[in-house]
């Protein structure tokens, strides 16, 4: 208390009637009499409730934030954002080159076309799926949040669907983000598609291929993650699936000269193949002309086969997750 305030209070003792700021003054003051306590703290709520849709939105938003490390210590932000940086930095470099050299670098084959940029994205994608995605399912089982979620309007399917959407959205940031950046930057710089029609076509292809690749890898990553409560095991499992399938199928087809349909088990290649179809990129060269024996190229697989295999990966991943969580729920 300040000395002035203390003196005022002391001097007030000599006066008749209530002092300023005294409780008695409040009673005499009509305005004070009309005062209300507005902060009622805990009270009942009779407003709108958003039901299952609101619950799913909340889980998606929370999971996206969790995956990207928002509201978590710095060590949880590092890996997801490193993946984003890995995916985005080449695009920034290419745009910088395009601006500095001021020529149509795509037409001159100096810069990669949009579909070719996925080579850079693939590294970030595998890194993100291997290290970051497993945590999105494993954490809820490990800390018991799953049981709490299931005591809300959410059911198992809606919980898992929300998680899958969250992973797909964050993966789409990696699969689409750099390409959308390239599209806008090339357009501004003057190296973009000709006319609004071509521009929209490229945009649709970027969005479509981004979603397809994200969905396929999401399903596989979540399937592996659902099988263990240990994040480390999930990480190893996802990395083994992504890299191991590439190595094994590559050896079988390229070295042992087996049927290229074995690439159906190569998660990276089969997604890549569908992306090429979406971008309208056919077999790069007539059979047998390229290095490597004829009939051993994934680009020679039929589009229908490629679509079916990607769909099968998504369905199989979803089935594994569903089977695993039904068992957890029953337990």
């Amino acid at each position: 208390m300040s000395g002035t305030a203390a003196n005022d209070r002391h001097e007030g003792l000599d006066h008749d009637g209530p002092e300023r700021g005294d409780a008695g003054a409040s009673v005499a003051d009509p305005e004070a009499q009309a005062a209300q306590i507005l902060d009622q703290r805990y009270r009942s709520y009779s407003g709108a409730r958003h039901g299952l849709a609101g619950a799913m939105r909340a889980v998606v938003a929370s999971s996206v934030r969790f995956t990207l490390g928002f509201g978590r210590p710095a060590r949880h932000k590092f890996l997801p954002w490193l993946a984003v940086v890995i995916a985005l930095v080449p695009a920034i470099v290419f745009v910088g080159i395009a601006i500095v050299l001021d020529i149509d670098l795509i037409s001159e084959n100096i810069l990669p076309e949009y579909h070719q940029y996925y080579g850079f994205i693939e590294v970030a994608l595998f890194f993100y799926c291997g290290i970051v995605v497993p945590e999105i399912l494993v954490a809820d089982r490990r800390n018991g949040m799953l049981s709490l979620y299931l005591s809300t309007p959410l059911r198992l399917w809606s919980y898992l669907a929300s998680k899958a959407v969250a992973v797909t959205v964050t993966l789409a940031v990696i699969t689409m983000g750099p390409l959308l950046f390239l599209l806008v930057a090339y357009t501004v710089e003057g190296s973009g598609p000709d006319g609004i029609g071509d521009w929209l076509t490229v945009l649709v292809r970027i969005l479509g291929s981004g979603i397809v690749i994200a969905a396929t890898i999401t399903a596989a990553s979540l399937a592996i993650s659902s099988l263990t409560d240990r994040r480390a095991f999930a990480v190893i499992g996802v990395i083994l699936l992504l890299l191991g399938s590439q190595i094994v199928t590559g050896l079988l087809v390229e070295v042992a000269e087996m049927d290229p349909r074995i690439y159906a088990f190569n998660l990276g290649e089969i997604g890549d193949a569908l992306k090429d179809r979406i971008f309208g990129v056919g077999p790069p060269s007539p059979l047998g002309e390229d290095d490597g024996p004829p009939g051993l190229r994934i680009s020679e697989l039929s589009t229908l086969f490629v679509i079916a295999v990607n769909a099968a990966w998504v369905a199989a991943g979803a089935a594994v997750v569903w089977w695993r969580y039904r068992r957890i729920e029953a337990g």
Partner: peptide, 18 residues
């Protein structure tokens, strides 16, 4: 790792509150 207020708010949203 979650703050108490974020945890409670999240569960309230999941139970349907805006």
């Amino acid at each position: 790792e979650m703050r108490a207020v974020d945890f409670v708010r999240h569960l309230a949203q999941v139970r349907g509150l805006p």
